[in-house]
């Protein structure tokens, strides 16, 4: 099934792309989809992005994740539906 990922803030710069379309197995869960997305990027992009998203296979606690427009809290790992859109952002600040 197809999923769309939208990387925001530092993640967009690290990923080198704003949008990524994934072809995932049915029933894939959020964290596994992120693993796949990072693995499908070129090596240097993957290396830059991974520590901002996943640590020891778990999502970074400061990562903001929205599934179809609604935030998913860090301890949630919902099963994704075909056509879902994920928006991911690392925290940013003023200055």
């Amino acid at each position: 099934m197809k999923l769309t990922l939208e990387w925001m803030s530092q993640l967009r710069v690290a990923a080198g792309t704003a949008l990524q379309v994934l072809d995932c197995p049915d029933g894939v869960q959020l964290t596994e989809a992120l693993e796949q997305a990072i693995a499908e990027l070129p090596d240097d992009r993957s290396e830059a992005l991974r520590p901002l998203v996943l640590v020891d296979g778990r999502r970074v606690s400061a990562l903001l994740v929205a599934l179809d427009g609604v935030q998913v809290l860090t301890d949630g790992n919902p099963e994704l539906r075909p056509g879902s859109t994920l928006v991911l952002s690392s925290p940013i600040a003023g200055g």
């Binding site: 939208e6 704003a18 903001l64 427009g69 935030q71 809290l73 928006v87």
Partner: peptide
């Protein structure tokens, strides 16, 4: 709600945020 946008491509999104 969190408004997030990118002026590079003028994409504006509003995300529903939740209390932990």
């Amino acid at each position: 709600k969190l408004l997030t946008y990118d002026l590079r491509d003028m994409r504006f999104l509003t995300i529903g945020i939740q209390r932990r």
